[in-house]
Design a protein around this nucleic acid. Structure first.
Length: 284
DNA sequence: CTAGGATCCTGTCAGC
DNA sequence: TGCTGACAGGATCCTA
């Protein structure tokens, strides 16, 4: 679930609590969730590659963390800092049934929770991080990429729907299901448009939109910040505050007032405004 | 090589 | 109430 903005939010938030802190012990509660041998050591750096987080230790080892769909990192010390897949775990007593790994630090405890066990922590030597196959295959983030580069990549997947293509981290890095839908909406492109039919102009708009939607999210702390309290005192979340189309099927398009629909593209739930995001017959 | 679908796993929710 | 199937903010593996 966590996409680039959420992982960046976690990185920035966690940094404050765990940099220069020693790991005293690591407890693996689910074998599948930890690859390699746990290493203690002092945390000297927190890096991010796409949706992957890298925790560097002072002993030559690193831990690569990927949250996949339902992973969460919750630091519990004097204060609690929780981010990742939004759920009650953010405020629950830990460890609980979904806790997979516990990292004990000198100043608190870092819980890796993951309902579906798709995520993992992997211990590797620091120089091996950039040789990791996932990291190595990652494309540039939208801010580093030019529209021409992106357009040319589209030509390698001419028959795939554009949504499937922008979800591919080896083509453009950082978007997930939310921001793919939001970026396509902002660029007024139908998610089923074949990548080979995307014009240079559309590629440009799409790239700019990807930057904008993710920047806005990072600036506001990512979509997975626990919750916020609405003026009426009830709880709300990022999606109802910032998402234009994601999980808004049945509601009215904020741009044209047409009803937002949900379809399936590339096996994923996909939200769009059929009026703003016309299939083929867009511009020239 | 690309494209599409199945798969990993747990939990929740809609519909009968 | 209990069951069943669909679905879920990701990525990889398998097949055609």
């Amino acid at each position: 679930m966590p996409e680039l903005p959420e992982v960046e939010t976690i990185r920035r938030g966690l940094e404050y609590f765990i940099i220069q802190k020693k790991i005293t012990k690591i407890k693996v509660l689910c074998e599948k969730s930890f690859i390699g041998a746990p290493k203690n050591g002092k945390i000297i750096n927190l890096r991010r590659f796409g949706k992957a987080l890298i925790l560097d230790l002072d002993n030559g080892y690193s831990m690569m963390i990927h949250l996949r769909m339902t992973g969460q990192l919750i630091f519990d010390g004097k204060e609690r800092y929780a981010a990742g897949h939004p759920s009650d775990n953010f405020t629950a007593k830990l460890p609980n049934k979904q806790t997979r790994v516990i990292i004990y630090l000198e100043n608190g405890t870092l819980y890796f929770n993951d309902q579906r066990k798709f995520g993992f922590i992997k211990a590797i030597k620091t120089p091996e991080v950039e040789k990791d196959s996932f990291i190595q295959k990652l494309a540039k983030e939208p801010w580093q990429m030019t529209a021409v580069e992106l357009y040319e990549k589209f030509q390698h997947h001419p028959k795939s729907p554009i949504k499937a293509v922008i979800l591919d981290q080896t083509i453009i890095c950082g978007l997930g299901n939310i921001y793919a839908d939001e970026a396509l909406f902002a660029a007024k492109i139908h998610p089923e448009t074949l990548a080979g039919n995307i014009t240079k102009k559309q590629a440009e708009k799409l790239l700019a939109s990807a930057c904008t939607v993710m920047e806005k999210s990072i600036a506001s702390g990512g979509s997975t910040m626990a919750t916020y309290i609405k003026p009426d005192g009830t709880k709300g979340d990022y999606l109802e505050k910032f998402a234009q189309v994601f999980r808004r099927e049945g509601q009215l398009c904020p741009r044209c007032g047409h009803k937002i629909v949900k379809i399936k593209v590339a096996g994923r739930g996909t939200h769009l405004c059929p009026s703003c995001q016309k299939k083929e017959l867009s511009h020239a």
